[in-house]
Design a binder for these strands. Structure first.
Lengths: 336, 336
DNA sequence: ATGAAGTTTGACACCGGTGTCATAATGTCA
DNA sequence: TGACATTATGACACCGGTGTCAAACTTCAT
């Protein structure tokens, strides 16, 4: 079976390549009769234009790359699902590229990625969306990109984020309103800007309600379940034990819940536990976790959609948006 | 900043394109002096070969596509991680493409994928690895592919799977050895071949130990947490309630555990629960789930690695492998 | 010095499309 | 019917690489 190219189609249809190309791209100035004829040949020969050749001529690949380095698998899944939705809407495809922020050489790694597959644009998810080094590099290389959940101030590039600080503030207020005063906090990964945002939301809520901030109630996590387990141990070993724990994401909260249950503590009777993100695990365990729903899919969807817009028309106005985070109360928190 | 192409490099270095191309590809028959000279120009101009142009000339994209349609996010994550490992080892990239097995038109969808990005090969994960229709199509289109966890008999294409039946058999024997006789079973998604394999492993173990199979103990799931929750309700409502539940994956097992805990049942005291896959959730909850560890990453890694081998050398012998599944006992199962 | 063999190099076609521009065909209006 | 605008079409260069093959240059034995 010989390959069917634009040349064979042209020959078979008795027209020039260019005319075939015109039909292919729905360009004007093709007589209905010719168009009809060519379309028939497409069917007859089962012609599929070669995307690589087209890419070379147009200098486009219709592929968006997604960069991530996140211990939370569910976060990644959600990011992908939002990105894919936007990509498929515009007939783009998504290439995924996990890599380490602090790896041997991030820039080299990304450079390698761009060298091996010409991407039309890049979606940066945390912590890459906060890497000034990477952003400078992409700017210099003139690669379009969009930032998801980035804290960097940069009016010249697309950014969609949610209000982490506000979310953490609300969640903390929720705990306070239930009567909790000793609220432990587990921080996220220091490379992620969300970590500080959530932490300050927590502190601001304490301040507002006149509760002293106690640094011994703060544990250092990194968003992984494992780090949550370590922090859980620290916190549950405290004497007196706090009456509530606010973990910076649901995985770490789940780790606290597991250890608490293992120790025969009643949740929320003996201790309330809350997370952040509204990851699937938050509703897959008992008691379900009170948490902050962050619209991860939606953020990524919008970011990628705007990225594609900008790629097809660079004069598009730069899109910057902050989405709302929302409190979800489940069974893991209660009045003390 | 003008674009740096092979032409500008050639001109600048005072050699022909072809010689530059030789240096680029480490081909022999270039004098050390020339090679040196060209390499210096690479550095000086910061030359990056255009992968699309190279792709057109060589008819390759160095991109592998990954097809999936799976309710279990963790399964997808693991598949991706194994596939990426293999891809990066050979400087390939991974493009992900979720689509519905029973969607409007699977073949059309995949055809569209192949039309919009020329992929060098495709990894099929369940349930696609069991779709004879899709496989026939890929064969006809001459697209290299590898099957992960496929039950289809086909000596002519790469296949890596694990022994689902054996795993289910062992897990069931484990429950039987703990003294359980009434063991409920939650089936997976009917489109997945693993569903029947696991089910027959369960039945065979019962037979071997002279236990009657009771169809009212079998619930129909589909691998999703939600379906597990529905099945859990059916099973826990039975009177007498079985003393153990074997769910076809960990998500469904987690759903059973949640409902049981909600109903104040002691696990494993009142009822033992086991899953399959050794998904992260199996160790993120309390009690941890007894399950069968399936080497998902490893299966996919091998499949993609072999796929790439076959792409670069079509005469490579077709790789077919069955990996072992392993019983992991945790706290969710105990003697009755 | 000569010829044979091996090494190095470049000219040129080619991969399969798209963009530019000239030309041919058709339509419009005085 | 002729002049001119408009539409349809194709020739050809081009995107940025690789493959083929012949020419030029070395090396070395005789």
């Amino acid at each position: 079976m010989k390959k069917v190219t634009i040349n064979s189609v042209a020959e078979y249809a008795g027209v020039s390549k260019k005319t075939v190309s015109r039909v292919l791209n729905n360009e004007p100035n093709v007589s209905p009769a010719t168009r009809e004829k060519v379309l028939k040949v497409f069917k007859e020969l089962d012609y599929k234009p070669n995307p690589i050749a087209r890419g070379l001529a147009r200098n486009k690949s219709f592929i968006i790359g997604c960069l991530y380095d996140n211990p939370s698998k569910s976060y990644i899944t959600r990011v992908q699902s939002g990105a894919l939705e936007a990509c498929h809407k515009f007939n783009y495809n998504l290439l995924i590229h996990p890599c380490e922020l602090r790896g041997t050489e991030l820039i080299e790694n990304v450079g390698q990625l761009l060298t091996t597959s010409r991407l039309d644009g890049l979606v940066l998810t945390p912590p890459f969306s906060d890497s000034q080094e990477l952003i400078d590099y992409l700017k210099q290389q003139d690669i379009p990109y969009a930032r998801v959940a980035s804290a960097i101030q940069d009016d010249s590039s697309i950014s969609v984020r949610s209000n982490d600080e506000q979310g953490a503030f609300e969640l903390t207020e929720h705990l306070i309103s239930l009567g909790h005063r000793d609220i432990a906090f587990i921080k996220g990964h220091p490379d992620h800007s969300a970590t500080e945002k959530r932490f300050s939301g927590y502190r601001n809520a304490l301040v507002k309600h006149g509760i002293d901030f106690k640094s011994h109630l703060v544990a250092e996590g990194n968003f992984s379940y494992h780090s949550g387990a370590d922090s859980a141990k620290e916190i549950l070993d405290l004497d007196p034990m706090p009456t509530a724990v606010f973990a910076s994401n649901d995985y770490m909260a789940a780790a606290v819940l597991k250890l608490a249950t293992q120790r025969q503590l009643k949740v929320p009777g003996d201790i309330s536990i809350a997370g952040f993100d509204n990851a699937p695990i938050a509703r897959h365990i008992w008691p379900g976790l009170t948490t902050i729903a962050q619209p991860v899919e939606e953020m990524t969807r919008q970011a990628v959609e705007q990225l594609i817009m900008q790629i097809s028309d660079p004069s598009t106005e730069v899109y910057q948006k902050v989405l709302e985070a929302k409190l979800i109360t489940r069974e893991s928190t209660a009045a003390r």
